[in-house]
Design a protein around this nucleic acid. Structure first.
Length: 878
RNA sequence: GGGCGAUUGGCUCAGUGGUAGAGCGCCUCGUUCACACCGAGGAGGUCACUGGUUCGAACCCAGUAUCGCCCACCA
């Protein structure tokens, strides 16, 4: 098998040029590196920015967190996206497929701290000659006290230095996997461009009144010491205990409440019961006195109090939970906070305490953790007799920051918000309408969006009290007392962005006025990571710096992402786009499922069942891993299954071998008019159906169905059709020409059908006999195949295959080789199949080595059965 | 408590009104000239359960159970 193939492409009428060659021995070894190099050299996936919006298919790729590691789930979902990208490219679209790296946020902040032994202190000036004290500490954590404080700009520089290596490794993995990304278009979420985009979008939100600051009680993480948004909450089980505590009313009256947080007793502002609750009617409007602290408190009615919860009457503290906030707000209760931002009780004794209560606070509670304070208060209550019975332990749900490990406290602070419909029915309705407008794949994922938007209980909190990230681009004028004027922030112009208010100076001020009365002060906070990530279409598409590009790619076509971040990434991106552009950011969202380990648990790094993606690709081959990923539908959780990868590998190898075989019979003319034999036409008719159905499936974001259709056809093509026609194809004359042309047309079509899922194997085969890349070849059309097939019945291949299978079965049951000739046999054929079997009888005879008498009789069975077979001796190879 | 998905052969999954499907695994066979990273043949399921609609239900409706997830639930 070393004859060069001479091939004429009937679509262009030109010979395909260079005498290409089918190798003697085919293999998948090394295809990934070879083709990645070739594709890069050819600029095969380079985005052509001369194309208009209508010709472009743009993808808002999720930027992976570079300080984490990529795992199997990433490989899974990014493959789904790549299949779409490759399909659209073959459909003629100019695919805009950039890759971003998320290096903004806590994971990177922590990694830089530990790796270089530094921490960010925005109050420090930039040091151009700074050298970090460490360079890589083998994962050992450097204690905060030993970390060198550096400016934000120095910190960002270290981040960029550290993430370069991560990004190189990520890109290597994606290249190996065969993602058809344009690698000249990568972005970083902490880059100057991304910071400028985030600040510009914010300033526009501010100018339109969509961003605002408010001082209000909010959820607070005491470990990270930052405010936390609703979207970052996680309800977890948390052990607690009910304490039954006595409050004292007029005379001997005693009211018992139950609480899991007795340490908040000094922060109590009222007792509250349901207005209909018979038990407490007589107390409404009266006052009681708190135990230990002796504070006089009103007993109030509010419908949010639940009669069957605890004692039915609650102590309202500022603040124990969000219900407290509601009561505080709606009943206009005083603020008596005792828990500080560090999670400890305030050092100073609260002014509303006096006498024994103040003493108790100063001696036992001040500066204590909530845990120690609780012990002290319980001990006090026990001593004073105000604890009724012993605490009863319970499992309660508490809100946690998703990255934190202590329950959130509620702390009053000044924060920035962006309106997201959480407080505004009109905006909420508009955003729900945007969700309805968006094409979710699968559709049921839309419910997640609706549930989330419908359940919002406040605007989007975007400020964080961290140091590394995109700073708010605002300053505040200081009055003569040095008090900042928060109501009238000083803002930069858009062309000044990005700014860092901790080192840059607002217009009309000089640097020496920073922090002095009559001068100015920079906003100390940074934006939530989602405030930047919600702008990935604007960052990747050049909204700020390249309006020409932006006009060609936005609104985008596709947002691929995980189901877990619908409430964060997807929703926040919709909010920003709705506010800034008055449109959806993309028309469709493809939601991938989870990868489950064999125990049906979500696969996670922490479980120690890490399989490195690169290891998988090296072991099974990229096409095989892609096959596994593509075998799972969008939105459906998939098992991590090595078996499926082996099947994928087998398929890729089969593509190589079957192609080699199909090209081995002599010259291939891709000329539909040569296809004259009924069986060949029937095969092409079946393939035309596959093309139609696979195309429809891909249009509906169902890559799994498309793959399954192509794969099923392909195996029948190999097992039956190739066997049936090979003798004829080896020969000469019209029958041989017909077989060869049909084989060529089928192979040409099948390679293109498989190209999105198996980019390496198909490109390998394509290079043997066709010009250019299969990945820039047009997606196959059914029409030319159907024209070649005429009115052939596609089921004729199956009928002939059934006849062949019947002959094989005779040999299999006789336990002889398939090469054994059949001297005489009777084929009982169901009437419905008879015409098709007769038509292909010569091919059946040849493939089944039925060299002697072959009698066809009609049967009323359902399948073809071979009877009365006489077998000869196996023929030795000649 | 509200919601979304799932439940089909040992495993992983297709199948949305017309007599149960695929691959893997299993059994048997075959050194076949494209392929042993192979090929051929075969066994294996009352489609979670209970009702209902229908000439007919894996599929439609109602309900139950189990599993997964989202949201709510901090007195």
């Amino acid at each position: 098998m070393s004859e060069p193939q001479h091939i004429v492409d009937q679509q262009t009428g030109t010979p395909t040029g260079a005498a290409r060659q089918v190798p003697d021995k085919v293999s998948l070894d090394g295809v990934e590196d070879r083709w990645d190099t070739a594709w890069t050299a050819q600029g095969l996936y380079a985005f052509d920015r001369s194309k208009e919006r209508a010709q472009v298919y743009s993808i808002d790729t999720p930027p992976p967190t570079v300080s984490g590691s990529l795992h199997v789930g990433h490989v899974f979902s990014y493959t789904h996206t790549d299949v779409v990208a490759r399909y659209r490219r073959m459909q003629g679209a100019e695919v805009f497929y950039p890759m971003g790296w998320d290096d903004n946020g806590l994971p990177t902040e922590r990694r830089v701290q530990n790796y270089y032994g530094v921490r960010c202190d925005p109050s420090l000036p930039y040091d151009a000659d700074f050298t970090p004290p460490f360079e890589g500490t083998d994962g050992k954590t450097i204690k905060a006290a030993d970390q060198v404080p550096i400016s934000r700009r120095n910190f960002v520089e270290l981040c960029e230095r550290l993430t370069v290596e991560d990004e190189r490794q990520f890109e290597a993995l994606w290249r190996r996997l065969g993602l058809s990304v344009d690698w000249s278009m990568t972005y970083q979420t902490i880059s100057a461009e991304a910071r400028a985009v985030a600040q510009q979008a914010f300033l526009r939100n501010l100018a339109r009144g969509e961003a605002y600051q408010a001082e209000a009680p909010g959820l607070w993480d005491v470990t990270f010491q930052t405010a936390v948004a609703q979207a970052e909450l996680e309800a977890r089980d948390y052990p607690g205990a009910y304490h039954r505590v006595a409050f004292h009313g007029a005379g001997d009256a005693t009211v018992f409440i139950e609480t899991t947080r007795p340490e908040l007793l000094p922060a109590c502002v009222a007792l509250i019961a349901h207005p209909d609750d018979e038990r407490y009617q007589h107390l409404f409007g009266t006052t009681v006195t708190s135990p230990l602290f002796g504070v006089e408190l009103p007993v109030l009615a509010h419908p949010a109090a639940e009669q069957d919860k605890g004692a039915g009457i609650a102590m309202c503290c500022t603040f124990g939970d969000l219900t407290d906030v509601q009561w505080w707000r709606e009943l206009q209760l005083p603020t008596r906070s005792v828990v500080g931002r560090d999670g400890r009780l305030l050092r100073d004794t609260p002014e509303w305490l006096s006498g024994a209560g103040a003493e108790l606070y100063a001696e036992q509670l001040a500066g204590k953790t909530t845990f120690s304070a609780r012990e002290a208060v319980v001990a006090g209550l026990r001593a004073s007799g105000d604890l009724d019975g012993e605490p009863v332990s319970t499992q309660r749900k508490a809100n946690f920051y998703e990255k934190g490990d202590k329950p959130l406290e509620i702390v009053t602070s000044r924060q920035w918000y962006i309106r997201n419909g959480g407080r505004d029915e009109e905006l909420r309705a508009a955003l729900l309408a945007r969700g309805a407008e968006l094409g979710f794949h699968p559709e049921f994922m839309a419910v997640r969006y609706e549930n989330w938007v419908g359940g919002l209980n406040g605007d989007w909190l975007i400020s964080r009290q961290r140091f590394f990230g995109v700073p708010f681009p605002v300053w505040y004028a200081l009055d003569e007392h040095g008090e900042p004027d928060h109501a009238n922030p000083l803002v930069p112009t858009e062309d000044q962005l990005p700014v860092d208010p901790s080192s840059d100076v607002p217009a009309g001020y000089t640097a020496d006025q920073r922090g002095v009365p009559g001068g100015f002060v920079g906003d100390p906070d940074i934006m939530d990571t989602w405030a930047t990530s919600s702008l990935t279409p604007q960052i990747a598409g050049g909204w700020r710096s390249d309006p020409d590009l932006f006009a060609r790619v936005f609104p985008m076509d596709l947002r691929p992402q995980g189901q877990d971040i619908i409430r964060t990434w997807l929703f926040s991106t919709v909010v920003r786009s709705h506010l800034e552009h008055g449109s959806l950011p993309w028309s469709d969202a493809a939601i991938s499922g989870w990868i489950l380990d064999p125990d049906r648990k979500k696969m996670s790094k922490s479980k120690g069942n890490v399989v490195t993606p690169m290891g998988l690709l090296e072991e099974h081959g990229s096409d095989a891993v892609r096959y596994w990923a593509a075998s799972a539908r969008l939105g459906t959780d998939a098992a991590f299954e090595v078996g499926q990868m082996k099947i994928g590998r087998r398929l890729a190898i089969k593509v190589l071998n079957a192609s080699k075989f199909a090209l081995s019979f002599g010259d291939v003319q891709l000329d539909p008019t040569l296809v004259t034999v009924a069986l060949d036409r029937a095969m092409l008719a079946g393939l035309a159906d596959v093309v139609d159905r696979a195309t429809a499936a891909l249009e509906g974001y169902d890559h799994t169905r498309a793959l399954e259709l192509s794969e099923t056809f392909f195996w029948t093509f190999c097992d039956d059709y190739l066997e049936l026609v090979k003798d004829r194809a080896y020969g000469e004359g019209a029958g041989a020409d017909s077989a060869r042309a049909a084989l060529g047309l089928a192979l040409d079509t099948l390679l293109r059908l498989f190209a999105p899922v198996l980019p390496f194997a198909t490109e390998e085969v394509w290079s043997w006999w066709r010009e250019g890349s299969v990945h820039r070849a047009p997606w196959p059309l059914a029409e030319p195949l159907r024209a070649a097939a005429g009115d052939a019945d596609p089921s004729a291949v199956a009928a002939a295959g059934a006849a062949l299978a019947a002959l094989r079965k005779v040999k299999s049951e006789a336990k002889v080789s398939m090469r054994t000739p059949i001297l005489a046999v009777t084929l009982a054929v169901p009437a419905a199949l008879r015409a098709n079997v007769e038509q292909a009888l010569d091919d059946v005879r040849a493939a089944g080595r039925a060299e002697g008498t072959l009698e066809l009789v009609e049967s009323d069975g359902e399948s073809v059965v071979a009877r009365d077979a006489e077998l000869g001796e196996p023929v030795a190879r000649g």
